[in-house]
Structure formats: structure tokens, C-alpha cells
Design a binder for these strands. Structure first.
Lengths: 156, 156
DNA sequence: TGAATTTCGTTAACGTGTTAAGTATACTTC
DNA sequence: GAAGTATACTTAACACGTTAACGAAATTCA
């Protein structure tokens, strides 16, 4: 199917399978399927892990920044932070200069959890890179970045 | 903000932003953001629309096939079919030769709904194709297909 | 035939995605 | 400095994603 030339220049309706959002979803699902068991072993969801990773990289930051870095909507982040705080994986403090803001950081337990999961996560990632090829993976990254940058800067 | 790398609180992992599942998610989100308003105007979610499209293309099929074509898990499809049946957009009948199977098809109303939405959906799609470029879009399709094919045929 | 197994669809439980509305704090402006 | 506006986060409501368990019909096979 890859290089299939279309004999028909203008089909009435694009083939159902040729739906970009669906292709993106399938690719993402194929990748996530590799990570989910690892996270599950530690009682974490993919999104909770995203928050932990963001905190490990960007240190104590407020919830707004954290939402941007982990690409979560505010309501989702609220629920996730409630869970992580309950599990004592994160800590929260009100920003002294702006009491609306809540500054989030990893607790000692959160940092330990990160250290424990990160290496295995990296190994899985390396496995994917090896299977698909470093160059093609980079090409995919570049196209994806171009794609959403284009769409976001078009504003319909 | 984005570039402000502080001294690591925790030893470094691959740059957080270089997470393929997240890049795929962002690209998908950028695309879906264009379609959601249209669907919303018709009271449909993205997944409900996927089911309608699959039924429009593949005619009456059983729920199992429909789940595969629309890339939905069985429990999600069950809920969606309940909704669509309630709205009289689809019909269901038990398969005569296998009473476990439920054969689903679009009702007249469902077909009309499809005809009403499809052209606008195609226009939005053409708009994306024009903004990003037909050749690059094709390259993206190809890479994505290669990617999940590779991962699925590796089986970890 | 009859019991064990498999398959199809559903229900359940919990977490996230999405939109809208709400609350509290900060900012602006007169 | 009080009123109006904006911002940061939370809550609510509904739909889907994911996993597990369940009931009914089909299949296998003893």
C-alpha cells in the first residue's frame, strides 16, 4: 500500500483508513503498548508518569507551567496532582508572590520512583529506536513537529 | 521558560519533549482540533463519527468487525452503539447464523447524517493537506504506517 | 450427548479528555 | 479604593480508554 499510485484522481470520498488522526492514534498506541506494562507495574498511568517526568526535568514549577510541559488540560492535571499528592509522590506549596498559584515538586519518594522507572523506560525507548531505525525515527519527529507547528500557526 | 534548564534535581533522561508518544499526541490533537467543532455542531464525538464513517463505507457489519475498522475497544464500541441506537442513527439485528453477533447498519437518518457531515469534513481535510503540503502529508502517512507495522510485527 | 473451552458482546470500575461553570486571588481603572 | 476584569486552579458532567470479569451462544472433544 505504501507507494500505491492512485489510478483515480478524485475519489468520491477518501478511503476511511486514510484518516490522519487515526493513523496518528494507531502509531501512538503501538508505542504506548510497550510502556504501559512497565508503568502499570508501578501503579502509574501514562499521564501520571508524564507529570513525574516533567517535574524531574523542570524542578519545582507551578501547575500552569506543568500543564504545558506535560500537555495535560487543567482539569486532568488537577485530578492527577490530587492522586500524586495522596501517594506522597509530589508536594505542593502556594506561591508566596501569587496565592493563586500552586508550586509543585517531587518528594523524595517521587524522585526515587523516577530513578527507579526511568532506566527501564529508556531501554524500551532504545528498543523502539533500534527496531524502527534512528534516521527514520528522526524523520518522523521532524515531520510531526512540522505538522503541528503548521496547523497551530494557521489558526484555521 | 522552555529553554530555562536549571541544574538537574535528578540525573538526566532523554529530553522530556523528545517523547514520541507525546509528539504523536500533539500532532493528532492539532488535527482533531479542526474537526471537533464540526462534529460538535452535529452533536457527535470523534469516535461516534468514526463509527458512522465505518458503517457508511463497510455497510452492515457485525460489532467485532466494526470495532476493528473504527479502532475502538469493545467496551467503548458498546457504549457508542447504545448512544447511536438511541438516537436512531443505527440499527442492530442479531446474526441469524450466530446469535452472539450483532449486525449493525446505518438507518436512513444515519445515512442522511453522514451525507450532511462528510463534505465539510472533506473540506477540512483538504485544508490541512493544503497547509502542510500533499507530499509531506504522504511522507508522514508512510512513516506512520511503517512505524506501527514495525512495532506490531516485533512483538517486543 | 455433555462438559470444558472459546468467542462475542456487555457491564463494571477507575482514570483521562473535553467543555462549561465556579471560586479565589491578582490586576486595572476610574 | 471599590468595581470590573483577568488569571489560576477546581469542580462538575459526560464521553472515551483501559483492564477485568461476566453471561450467553458457539465450538471442541471426550
Amino acid at each position: 500500500m505504501r507507494g500505491a499510485k492512485k489510478t483515480n484522481p478524485v475519489p468520491a470520498l477518501r478511503d476511511f483508513r486514510h484518516s490522519l488522526p487515526m493513523e496518528l492514534m494507531k502509531a501512538r498506541e503501538a508505542a504506548m503498548a510497550r510502556f504501559r506494562p512497565l508503568l502499570r507495574d508501578h501503579g502509574l498511568t501514562e499521564q501520571q508518569w508524564r507529570v513525574i517526568r516533567a517535574l524531574a526535568e523542570y524542578g519545582p514549577i507551578d501547575a500552569g507551567e506543568l500543564a504545558k510541559e506535560s500537555f495535560l488540560l487543567a482539569p486532568s492535571l488537577t485530578r492527577i496532582l490530587q492522586f500524586l499528592e495522596n501517594e506522597k509522590i509530589i508536594r505542593r506549596a502556594v506561591d508566596a508572590s501569587d496565592q493563586r498559584k500552586s508550586v509543585v515538586s517531587l518528594s523524595a519518594r517521587g524522585k526515587a520512583l523516577f530513578q527507579q522507572i526511568a532506566p527501564a523506560s529508556e531501554r524500551l525507548y532504545a528498543q523502539i529506536e533500534a527496531a524502527f531505525g534512528e534516521d527514520r525515527l528522526q524523520a518522523l519527529y521532524d515531520l510531526l513537529a512540522d505538522f503541528y507547528t503548521t496547523l497551530e500557526h494557521e489558526e484555521a
